[in-house]
Computed example of a mutant assay.
Amino acid sequence: MDQSGVRQRSGLAQGCVIALGMVLAMALAVGATLYFVGRSAFDRLTGGPDPVTVASASLQGLREQNRLSAFAARYVAVVTTSQTRMGFTAQKTMIMPGSVRYEVDLGKLNQRDVIWDPATKKLSIALPPLEVVGPEVDLNNIREYGEGGVLMTLTDSEERLDAANRAAGQKELVRQAREATPMRLARDATRRAVERSFSMPLRATGMDVTVEALFPDERTAQDRERWDVSKSIEQVLRERAEREGAKK
């Protein structure tokens, strides 16, 4: 009776290899892009801008960017698969490097997700969830090692082992990408990028405003309570439009 077994192990110190150069380059590119988006939003304003007006223009500029990728990392998965058939055992190990991007869908942001508290001069943004995109496997740098050539020669074991290793390797890359440390780094980079996109045009108008961006699971009970009683920029703009309509 045939028997088969699969075992996997993550390699290279069981951790992720963060591509610092890649992250730095992306951070600079995102910062430059968001600066020009914010500046463009400010330039489109007429009259005496206030925080709500500036924030609304900045929000529109961000939505036009569609997706924001402020962080990327490179990982290495090492997986081993074995198979026993006809009394012979074959085993293959695959070293699979790959890259992962961390993104937020800015198209999901709307005016209800941005609130302004005039008492504390604080602008709060409720961010969409962080998404792990990939992995993009580096096919040119995959390395494989095997033993049990008799079984691989007589059967299709090698093809089966390769397929199992590829699937396990990609799963392992995603697992590493979702570990606490890289997720925290990705959240911090994304949060800073979004906060800068709102704070720079506000400061350009001379306003001293605090900007805070939070992911859904980062909002405390106090944040949710403040969110419930504070007005979103959608509400503020709608009330202004109603008042202006009543004057006419």
Rank of each mutant, 00 (worst) to 15 (best):
V6Y: 01
L12G: 11
G15K: 14
L28D: 12
G38E: 10
R39V: 05
A41G: 14
F42R: 14
P51S: 10
V52P: 05
T53M: 04
V54L: 09
L59I: 01
Q65Y: 01
A70C: 05
S82P: 06
T84F: 00
T84N: 08
M86N: 13
A90L: 09
A90T: 11
V100D: 04
K108C: 00
K108N: 09
L109F: 07
N110H: 08
P118S: 05
A119M: 08
K121S: 15
L123F: 08
P129D: 12
G134I: 08
P135F: 06
G148K: 09
V150Q: 05
T155V: 08
A163E: 13
R166I: 10
G169V: 07
Q170Y: 00
R178S: 09
E179G: 06
E179P: 02
A180H: 12
P182V: 06
R187A: 14
A189E: 07
T190R: 07
A193R: 05
V194F: 01
E195D: 05
P201T: 06
P201W: 01
M207G: 03
T210A: 15
L214R: 15
P216W: 02
R219A: 10
T220I: 07
T220D: 06
W227H: 12
D228V: 09
V229A: 04
E234D: 14
Q235C: 02
V236L: 14
G245S: 13
